[in-house]
């Protein structure tokens, strides 16, 4: 059976002025569908770079990367837009909601920008279903600035799930939340993983988050540290 994510020998080098900065030094990684995985590591270790490459937001300098059977390393940027839209959901540290859209519009945004429009009634029903799943069905017409941090992150989770992605990437999703809200968000993601078999991969510094993960990867100085398995 093929893996959802299959990376071999991934390197990433940035150029800062005349200096080459190596962010990843030959990462091998496989993740299967349905996993709930965290990537940990100190600042500057390369975990955000790894998530960016996995999320098709950036391209590796060398190495191969196959996502859900698609060799994304050879695709151009607009092709990758389609891959991102169909296969990946994103949850950001700063929520990154679109301020001029209300909750319902933010949730449906990734579907709304598709070339082939979906049936509006069916889409709206799914938006309401997701909003209910994340506990925001009473806030559909609120703008992001009318919500708390936790509520915003719940909107971001619903937005990440609206396209029924194969993978949800979350970059430090609890970093801007208080501990109680962080717990609620982690519980929500765990429930979605358990009940809807959504594959989660997120980076975090938060030890409480790591403790909930079923698999923890540690990255250090651009290299994956082996043997980090949990639960």
């Amino acid at each position: 059976m093929s893996h959802l994510i299959e990376m071999k020998g991934i390197t990433k080098t940035y150029q800062l002025g005349k200096t080459d900065v190596v962010a990843l030094r030959g990462v091998d990684l496989t993740i299967d569908a349905g996993e709930f995985t965290v990537v940990t590591g100190p600042s500057g270790s390369g975990k955000t770079t790894l998530l960016n490459i996995i999320g098709c937001l950036d391209r590796a300098t060398s190495g191969s990367y196959v996502l859900d059977g698609v060799d994304v390393g050879t695709r151009d940027f607009d092709d990758l837009a389609g891959v991102r839209n169909e296969k990946i959901g994103f949850i950001f540290q700063n929520f990154n909601l679109i301020p001029v859209l209300d909750v319902a519009e933010n949730i449906e945004f990734p579907v709304a920008v598709r070339k082939n429009a979906e049936d509006p009634a069916a889409l709206r029903a799914r938006v309401e279903q997701l909003a209910k799943a994340v506990g925001l069905d009473q806030f559909l017409h609120h703008k992001p600035d009318e919500l708390s941090g936790g509520q915003r992150q719940r909107v971001a989770i619903a937005r990440a799930l609206i396209t029924r992605p194969r993978l949800v990437l979350a970059d430090e999703p609890t970093a801007n939340l208080d501990s109680k809200t962080s717990e609620q968000i982690i519980d929500l993601m765990l429930a979605l993983n358990r009940e809807q078999a959504v594959t989660f991969l997120f980076s975090t510094h938060d030890a409480r988050v790591v403790s909930h993960a079923r698999r923890a990867l540690q990255i250090s100085d651009g290299r994956m540290v082996a043997g980090a398995m949990a639960h």
Partner: peptide
């Protein structure tokens, strides 16, 4: 800028 980055991340094309 960050909002545009988000739009690109969730699958909006450059032409859009």
């Amino acid at each position: 800028v960050r909002e545009i980055g988000t739009m690109l991340a969730v699958g909006m094309r450059r032409s859009q």
